Simulated scan of single mutants.
Amino acid sequence: MKAAALLFIIGLLLVSGGSHSLQYFYTAVTPGTDFPEFTAVGLVDGEQFMYYDSNIRQAIPKVDWIKNNEGPDYWTRTTQIIQRFEAIYKDSIGTVMQRFNQSGGE
């Protein structure tokens, strides 16, 4: 019998000036699924502008306006920040699996 996959989703909503919204969604799942163990998606006013997952290990732009306005330093910093979140989430998944006596295998 396979253990059920655990899933964490957290959304962070920041609003500035009342006219725009910035949201980040972080998703972590237990190892052994066909889905990346960690993903991050950034949205401005509901439009996805960036993506990261634990397979590619790099934040990438998803729309032209961000590609044309942010350089490599921005993407390096963003990748580093998200990788810190990834480490925290992976740690949390491990803790939850222990507490619920889930080995992650058969």
Score class of each variant (00 low, 15 high):
residue 1 M to R: 14
residue 1 M to E: 09
residue 2 K to S: 13
residue 5 A to N: 05
residue 6 L to G: 13
residue 6 L to P: 01
residue 6 L to R: 08
residue 7 L to P: 02
residue 7 L to R: 10
residue 7 L to K: 09
residue 7 L to G: 05
residue 8 F to K: 08
residue 10 I to R: 12
residue 11 G to S: 08
residue 11 G to K: 07
residue 12 L to P: 03
residue 12 L to I: 09
residue 13 L to S: 11
residue 14 L to Q: 03
residue 14 L to H: 13
residue 16 S to N: 11
residue 17 G to A: 07
residue 18 G to C: 02
residue 19 S to R: 08
residue 19 S to L: 06
residue 19 S to E: 07
residue 19 S to P: 00
residue 23 Q to H: 11
residue 23 Q to G: 12
residue 24 Y to A: 12
residue 24 Y to D: 07
residue 24 Y to G: 11
residue 27 T to F: 02
residue 28 A to I: 01
residue 30 T to V: 06
residue 30 T to P: 10
residue 30 T to I: 02
residue 33 T to R: 10
residue 33 T to C: 09
residue 34 D to R: 07
residue 35 F to S: 10
residue 35 F to E: 05
residue 37 E to G: 04
residue 37 E to A: 09
residue 38 F to S: 05
residue 39 T to S: 10
residue 39 T to N: 03
residue 42 G to N: 00
residue 42 G to T: 02
residue 44 V to Y: 04
residue 46 G to I: 07
residue 50 M to K: 03
residue 50 M to I: 02
residue 50 M to Q: 09
residue 51 Y to V: 06
residue 51 Y to P: 05
residue 52 Y to V: 08
residue 52 Y to E: 03
residue 54 S to P: 01
residue 54 S to R: 00
residue 54 S to M: 05
residue 54 S to D: 01
residue 56 I to Q: 09
residue 58 Q to T: 09
residue 58 Q to R: 15
residue 59 A to M: 04
residue 59 A to V: 11
residue 59 A to C: 14
residue 61 P to M: 06
residue 62 K to I: 01
residue 63 V to Y: 12
residue 64 D to P: 08
residue 65 W to M: 15
residue 66 I to T: 13
residue 67 K to W: 04
residue 70 E to Q: 14
residue 70 E to S: 13
residue 70 E to G: 11
residue 72 P to F: 06
residue 73 D to W: 03
residue 74 Y to C: 14
residue 75 W to F: 14
residue 75 W to L: 11
residue 77 R to E: 02
residue 77 R to Y: 02
residue 77 R to K: 13
residue 77 R to P: 01
residue 79 T to Q: 04
residue 80 Q to I: 03
residue 81 I to Y: 09
residue 81 I to V: 12
residue 84 R to S: 13
residue 86 E to M: 07
residue 87 A to E: 05
residue 88 I to W: 05
residue 89 Y to E: 03
residue 90 K to W: 00
residue 91 D to R: 12
residue 92 S to G: 11
residue 93 I to M: 04
residue 95 T to P: 04
residue 96 V to W: 05
residue 98 Q to D: 13
residue 100 F to Y: 15
residue 101 N to D: 15
residue 101 N to H: 15
residue 102 Q to K: 15
residue 103 S to T: 13
residue 104 G to W: 03
residue 104 G to M: 03
residue 105 G to D: 00
residue 105 G to R: 09
